[in-house]
Amino acid sequence: MSCCFDLVIFDCDGVLIDSEILAIEAEVRVFTRHGLPVDAAFILDHCTGLSWKSELAFMEAWFKVTLPPGISAEAAQETESLLEARLVAIGGIEAVLDGLTIPACVASSSTPERLRLSLGKVGLYARFAPHIFSSTMVQNGKPAPDLFLYAAREMQAAPDRCVVIEDSVHGVHAAKAAGMTAIGFTGGSHCRSGHAQRLLEAGADRVIGGHDALAPALACPAVRARG
């Protein structure tokens, strides 16, 4: 696969693994148990792409509540149970990785523990390790650019030579704030009608519907037109 970039930065949930729909299901269960009237659409609209710390802060501010400290462990247990039972990789990712001729890494809002669990379950952890970066490694998670800039520094790549593959509005905002090219991805089962347009409106330079379209997007200079 020829490429006009020096580094590909993959988001994890919803790009490498079809986990967003499972995480959303777990979060809806937990938040409703604690009296918050949320559904999957609410989580999708407001929280996809955020770190758990940022999501909790958003929920407390939105609903004007203080959530109990134990809710984090509760959500982690609920999510891990669903991941263990139903997690799969996004179709086509293995072929993409086999064809890459430049370095690649992962930059995710998930914790290192969850990244090891989820990527390991679908056989992708060894494909990226040790180049797997978590928002816990930086001060500010997405939509701040910190995580992507940290990944670029660790991989010794200039930001303007990096391309980020992201499924969330918050992630696209972070990539563009970092001065990187952003390719929106709508191949996860959580993506609803109109999601491609939402990613474009957030600043994505291009949107693809699956990994079969990624190789042409990486090779084509036109992807950088809006960067």
Score class of each variant (00 low, 15 high):
residue 205 D to F: 04
residue 177 A to L: 09
residue 86 R to W: 08
residue 208 I to A: 06
residue 88 V to T: 14
residue 185 F to M: 09
residue 139 Q to A: 14
residue 166 E to R: 05
residue 165 I to Y: 04
residue 170 H to C: 12
residue 131 H to L: 05
residue 42 F to M: 13
residue 155 M to N: 11
residue 191 C to V: 14
residue 216 P to C: 13
residue 120 G to A: 13
residue 164 V to G: 10
residue 213 A to K: 08
residue 4 C to Y: 00
residue 24 I to S: 09
residue 6 D to Q: 15
residue 83 L to C: 03
residue 151 A to N: 08
residue 70 G to R: 11
residue 201 E to Q: 15
residue 21 I to Y: 01
residue 57 A to K: 13
residue 25 E to T: 14
residue 30 V to T: 12
residue 53 K to H: 09
residue 47 C to V: 12
residue 151 A to K: 06
residue 139 Q to R: 14
residue 109 S to M: 06
residue 51 S to W: 01
residue 146 D to K: 11
residue 195 H to L: 08
residue 9 I to Q: 04
residue 60 E to Y: 06
residue 130 P to L: 13
residue 26 A to K: 09
residue 6 D to M: 06
residue 69 P to T: 10
residue 56 L to P: 00
residue 73 A to Y: 02
residue 83 L to A: 03
residue 107 A to G: 12
residue 194 G to A: 12
residue 144 A to W: 00
residue 46 H to N: 15
residue 215 A to P: 00
residue 41 A to W: 00
residue 82 L to S: 10
residue 96 V to F: 02
residue 50 L to G: 07
residue 33 R to M: 10
residue 82 L to F: 02
residue 154 E to Y: 02
residue 4 C to G: 11
residue 85 A to W: 01
residue 192 R to N: 03
residue 3 C to R: 05
residue 25 E to C: 05
residue 110 S to E: 03
residue 86 R to I: 04
residue 158 A to V: 10
residue 33 R to Q: 14
residue 45 D to K: 15
residue 83 L to P: 00
residue 18 D to V: 04
residue 127 R to Y: 07
residue 156 Q to P: 00
residue 7 L to D: 07
residue 85 A to N: 09
residue 204 A to L: 12
residue 19 S to D: 02
residue 215 A to Q: 10
residue 112 P to V: 07
residue 9 I to M: 10
residue 77 Q to H: 12
residue 175 A to P: 07
residue 123 G to R: 03
residue 111 T to G: 03
residue 52 W to N: 04
residue 131 H to M: 07
residue 39 D to N: 15
residue 190 H to N: 12
residue 98 D to S: 10
residue 97 L to S: 02
residue 20 E to R: 07
residue 188 G to M: 07
residue 144 A to S: 13
residue 45 D to A: 15
residue 198 R to H: 10
residue 203 G to I: 07
residue 35 G to M: 07
residue 213 A to F: 00
residue 111 T to K: 06
residue 75 A to Y: 01
residue 200 L to S: 11
residue 112 P to C: 12
residue 94 E to W: 01
residue 54 S to H: 05
residue 196 A to R: 13
residue 103 P to R: 07
residue 60 E to F: 06
residue 155 M to D: 11
residue 21 I to P: 00
residue 199 L to I: 11
residue 189 S to D: 06
residue 196 A to G: 15
residue 97 L to A: 05
residue 104 A to K: 08
residue 147 L to M: 11
residue 190 H to S: 14
residue 48 T to V: 15
residue 102 I to E: 01
residue 31 F to I: 01
residue 196 A to L: 07
residue 192 R to K: 15
residue 38 V to F: 02
residue 29 R to V: 14
residue 208 I to N: 03
residue 6 D to T: 10
residue 217 A to Q: 08
residue 186 T to N: 06
residue 187 G to D: 10
residue 2 S to V: 05
residue 138 V to H: 09
residue 13 D to P: 12
residue 87 L to F: 03
residue 155 M to T: 09
residue 163 V to T: 04
residue 10 F to H: 10
residue 49 G to L: 03
residue 88 V to R: 13
residue 5 F to G: 01
residue 136 T to G: 01
residue 95 A to P: 00
residue 217 A to F: 03
residue 20 E to P: 12
residue 38 V to E: 02
residue 115 L to F: 04
residue 149 L to T: 05
residue 13 D to S: 11
residue 20 E to H: 08
residue 163 V to L: 10
residue 58 F to S: 09
residue 97 L to R: 01
residue 163 V to P: 00
residue 66 T to K: 14
residue 6 D to G: 13
residue 103 P to N: 08
residue 190 H to I: 13
residue 103 P to L: 06
